[in-house]
């Protein structure tokens, strides 16, 4: 790991120069008492002392609505593929959201590479930032509380008087050299970084009472648990959890015509497996008709199906679904209840 240190004033200058010189810079910005990732007009817009954003930065890699093709009807129709990849520096991405990007990188990069995701991904520079948790965060339980070395271009941690900057890529190194004043880290800086990380770990309150790597196995034994009935009875099938999740990547595809009825676009839109009609086929048969099977499906995707396929939990512990669920369904309570049930049955 290459570690540099910046004075706080120099960090502000660095961000100011990024905003002025790079084609686009976004970061956490205050909005109605919460935070959202949004365009930065100046360094004053950036608020790095945030806990979470309403939506994860996934929206820059996989937008809520995205054009895949543009076409003009006729004989023959004229069709043009669309790959939009605006260069963007995303500042202030927390480790859990870096883990979310790790997950969507796997999902979209697997087998058939998703050309639209890849184009956006390659145009994005990630400057991570460390954080302190709120009562919903459970990153330590899924191993997403520390920034993975390959998951960012730069990663900033506040160590009191100064910030440490980890360099994760050549792109990150170049940005730092071009726009920032920094110095080598001393033993005291390293100690400050460790202290800050320990403080963060200690501050995480919500947790899964199980080694996350055991969850695919645990879920194997609880697919008929009465808990799914209870959650299904509470779940409003509103799709909020899908909407805010950094690793939900399901989508719908359809055509949108312009008013001239000659030109149109093929678009994809975020979809959600907890929405009623997600698994309905053309004849009307719904393969997950009941809310309990949809809630369960979502949990199994995060902690078993995708986890088994890619090796790590697809839940990042960010707590967004816990915060946004109108029925107060949340992963720590759900997993811990399933665990308790499995333990009771074993005893």
């Amino acid at each position: 790991m290459t570690l540099r240190v910046m004075e706080k004033g120099d960090l502000a200058s660095f961000v100011e120069r990024l905003i002025a010189s790079e084609p686009g810079a976004v970061g956490p910005v205050r909005k109605d008492g919460k935070h959202v990732f949004a365009r930065l007009a100046s360094v004053e817009d950036l608020d790095l002392a945030y806990t979470t954003t309403l939506l994860p930065p996934k929206k820059y890699l996989f937008p809520p609505q995205e054009t895949l093709l543009r076409f003009r009807l006729g004989a023959p129709p004229v069709v043009e593929p669309v790959l939009e990849a605006p260069p963007l520096v995303v500042i202030g991405v927390h480790p859990c959201d870096l883990r979310g990007i790790w997950a969507t990188d796997r999902a979209f990069g697997d087998d058939h590479v998703d050309t639209n995701y890849r184009a956006r991904r390659e145009a994005i520079t990630l400057i991570g930032a460390d954080c302190l948790p709120d009562e919903h965060c459970f990153c330590t339980s899924v191993g997403s509380h520390l920034p993975e070395p390959a998951s960012f271009d730069l990663f900033v941690t506040d160590i009191g008087d100064a910030v440490t900057v980890e360099i994760g890529s050549e792109r990150g190194r170049a940005l730092l050299e071009r726009y920032a004043r920094s110095r080598e880290a001393t033993a005291a800086d390293l100690a400050g970084l460790q202290k800050r990380r320990h403080a963060k770990e200690a501050a995480v309150k919500a947790r899964l009472n199980v080694d996350v790597q055991m969850l695919p196995l645990l879920l194997e034994s609880v697919s008929t648990s009465p808990l799914w009935e209870q959650l299904g009875a509470k779940c409003l099938s509103c799709g909020n959890c899908n909407l805010v999740c950094p690793t939900c990547y399901c989508f719908d595809v359809g055509d949108l015509m312009q008013l001239n009825l000659e030109e149109g676009e093929r678009i994809r839109r975020w979809d959600g497996c907890t929405l009623v009609d997600f698994a309905t086929v053309a004849g009307g048969h719904n393969f997950r008709r009941e809310a309990k099977s949809r809630v369960r499906h979502r949990y199994y995707r995060k902690f078993q199906y995708l986890m088994t396929r890619y090796g790590r939990s697809f839940c990042t512990g960010c707590g967004r679904c816990s915060r946004s669920c109108l029925a107060h369904i949340n992963p720590p309570e759900t997993i811990n209840a399933l665990l308790a049930e499995a333990e009771r049955e074993e005893a």
Binding site: F251, V253, F278
Partner: peptide, 12 residues
């Protein structure tokens, strides 16, 4: 059709 959109998933 390429294992991304999630709609056709049966269990895993």
């Amino acid at each position: 059709g390429v294992g991304k959109c999630g709609h056709c998933q049966i269990n895993g």
